[in-house]
């Protein structure tokens, strides 16, 4: 093209996806630490039962309520079970519940929210009403009601947790899709011969991923807290199954007599897991956001 001055290229190295993940982790040490902690938690969930020193269900009346020692790192509970083994083994159950619940609500919420945000009109209005109704209940109370009504099982804990989290995803996605519905790149995609479904699925929704990732990480934390809270008040998981919420509940009875370790360690572990998920949010967002690639 004659007469056209081409602007000077600015230096910007191009990177692959893996290199980008590495870049994000190096850039932010907090993210790197949280990802490492997450890896440890996943390892505990997968290998936990094979690694622990004691059978988490084996009772030993002779060694009940022993404080932490070399033999029992986290002490023993009122039935003489090893608290450390129970805490580690419980990881799998707690993680499974929260991952399953978050995955369910993510898929359902994102689909509903994307359709409502893109179509608008009555679909949007109906969804808004349904979400309003769910959100009209204090969420933990609704989860209590659902589990009480559907039956006291682990699956129902998952469903209840999923249902109360759906509005969060649906709202985030609806808002993100709605602002991009008339964006230039969505219109350009239609001019390029894409159907509405395709514009939504391959152009708009991927751009809503970064804020959703923050939501996922927060929700993972809530989901664990929620499941543990339900077992704490006696719903869902039943003793003697090792689970953090139940263990804290059992330990609560001994705290006033000074046996702190029975409740403290499962509680700390629970906190650590939630903390890890919350910290991961920003890192996850940076990984799925191409604009962070510099």
């Amino acid at each position: 093209m004659s007469g056209i001055v081409s602007p000077a290229p600015t230096p910007a190295p191009e990177r692959g996806a893996l290199a980008h993940v590495g870049h994000v982790l190096r850039e932010n040490p907090v993210t790197a630490v949280s990802f490492a902690m997450f890896a440890v938690i996943v390892l505990m969930a997968v290998l936990g039962p094979a690694l622990v020193p004691y059978d988490p269900l084996a009772t030993n009346a002779a060694r009940a309520l022993e404080p932490p020692s070399a033999a029992h790192w986290f002490g023993t509970d009122h039935l003489g079970r090893d608290v450390f083994s129970r805490v580690v083994v419980a990881t799998r159950l707690d993680l499974t519940i929260s991952v399953a619940a978050v995955a369910l609500s993510f898929v359902i919420g994102a689909t509903l929210g994307a359709i409502a945000g893109y179509r608008g009109g009555w679909v949007d209005a109906v969804l808004a009403r349904v979400l309003d109704t769910i959100m009209a209940f204090p969420l933990f109370v609704l989860a209590m009601g659902i589990v009480a009504a559907m039956g006291n099982t682990i699956e129902n804990i998952v469903y209840a947790t999923a249902i109360i989290n759906i509005p969060f995803y649906a709202r985030v996605v609806r808002a993100e899709v709605n602002i991009r519905r008339e964006a230039g790149f969505a219109l350009a995609a239609r001019l390029a011969g894409n159907s509405h479904a395709r514009v939504l699925a391959s152009h708009i929704v991927p751009n809503a991923l970064p804020p959703m990732m923050v939501q996922v990480s927060l929700n993972m934390g809530w989901a664990i807290l929620n499941a543990a809270g339900l077992s704490f008040i006696g719903l869902g998981v039943r003793p003697p199954t090792p689970e953090w919420g139940i263990m804290v509940a059992e330990g609560a009875n001994y705290i006033v007599s000074g046996h702190w370790w029975v409740a403290l360690f499962p509680g700390l572990w629970l906190m650590l897991a939630v903390f890890t998920f919350n910290l991961m949010g920003d890192g996850l967002r940076d990984i799925v956001d191409p604009r962070r690639r510099t």
Binding site: L218, L225, G229, G245, V248, I255, L270, M271, L272
Partner: peptide, 28 residues
């Protein structure tokens, strides 16, 4: 960040242990 990671029931128990059992400041 720490605050949203706190399980309420656990915070309550820790507070009871510290302020009721250990320090004796709080009533039962």
């Amino acid at each position: 960040t720490a605050g949203v990671s706190l399980p309420t029931f656990f915070t309550g128990i820790v507070l009871i242990y510290v302020f009721y059992y250990l320090l004796g400041w709080a009533p039962s």
